[in-house]
Design a protein around this nucleic acid. Sequence first.
RNA 1: GUGGUUAUAGCUCAGUCGGUUAGAGCGUCGGAUUGUGGUUCCGAAGGUCGCGGGUUCGAGCCCCGUUUUCCACCCCA
Length: 453
Amino acid sequence: MAQKPSIPKGTRDFTPAEMANRNYIFNTIKDVFRLYGFQQIETPAMENLSTLMGKYGEEGDKLLFKILNSGDFLNGLSDNELLERNSPKLTTKISEKGLRYDLTVPFARFVVQNRDKITFPFKRYQIQPVWRADRPQRGRYREFYQCDVDVVGSDSLLNELELIQIVDEVYRRLKIKVVIKINNRKILSGIAEIIGEAEKITDITVAIDKMDKIGLEKVNEEIASKGISQQAIDKLQPILKLSGTNSEKLNQLKAVLSYSEIGMKGIAELETIFGLCEAMKVDTAIELDLTLARGLNYYTGAIFEVKALDVEIGSITGGGRYDNLTGVFGMEGVSGVGISFGADRIYDVLNQLELYPENSVENTRVLFVSFGEKELMYCLPWLNALRAKGINTEIYPESAKMKKQMSYADNKHIPYVAIVGETEMNEGKVMLKNMKSGEQQLCTLNELLAIIQ
RNA sequence: GUGGUUAUAGCUCAGUCGGUUAGAGCGUCGGAUUGUGGUUCCGAAGGUCGCGGGUUCGAGCCCCGUUUUCCACCCCA
């Protein structure tokens, strides 16, 4: 055998059956997005590296797939530069493009670049693959789809509400039980401020984000290792051990954060959002979770994460508010808030729970079986007529044996087979076989339509 | 990037202590059945045992390297 073909690690092929299931997810999500007035855009798979670099932290830069310049990419490089073996420095000289890492940064770029063509508040959705040079493992791929919805150019917390409603509706339709975890970056900032470590906020949030995984003790260890004083860590404890309902937690927080203006603002925002959700009777449980920090450093207000209740897979949706995302591209003062559905993880969840609907509408409804040139010419107008009625129809393209043609129909789960031979042609009919019951009858075109429609 | 793990037919996997010609199920193809699939029966094709090197009289099996798979960490959807 020749060399076995393969695909890059962390990437996947999708069979027709798998695509039917994936499209079910994408269509469900899309339908809900449109229901709330969001419009679709697309951006290129590759962006200039200058757009991407520095937006995801230094870790993110490493996880970017970089595209080698075309042609003689070593042209203009001195031998000295090559001998230095300084990869990051060399990278900037031999690669100027990279594959997108998420949809949010390209979207920010899009807004800045197309500001003359869009009306604010701009509500867009975007469903495209993103790429990360990560090491793949369960629920983690190097190529995966994100389904982003964002609103830019509006500070209103109504947007946060609508995003929560979208989450609520999407997972209701997909029949996945979830919990929405919510937090607010301003509260985290307030906490850092109160304990006197305002500038260590990132370290603190990264550490407490791991609360679920490694527990209180290890979180404290990690915080300490970042050079935060024991005194500050002590002050942090009551906050990490918060309990009760959302409003109980908020009240406890109010007591702790009363001297932090920003912290109190975060609390007020959360109270508003909870109030709105209650008024709108959002079904899904919403849980204030201070350990929710998320790595992306551009969130400034609400932070969301959605976890599936019945499957262990990490978060399947995440997002938040970022006050000045377009600022890095020279457009100040535009606030945005958005969330991203991880289609591939949702796909894994649905696979594990087998929650797909039965009807595969995309499938062929009728297969014509025929035995030769004459029969073929007889069938083709029938195919035209059925397709004109919007019925998915195909004909087996070779005059193969009946057994083979029937097996083909069977494997493709085609519910009806129309058999055409001498007898049928003489009568101007076809023999229609129901593949499930095995019954068959001679039909005119209208009789056939009546049966299969 | 760090640590561990895996690799045998298209797929899922057996393969004893290192011993002759590497097996099964499923799938594919052909036949039983020239116009009837899903069930059954018969038969066939399909392998550089991931790749490269080493140890040995002899390696799918042991050793080294490399690639790959999966898992944990980092990080994340």
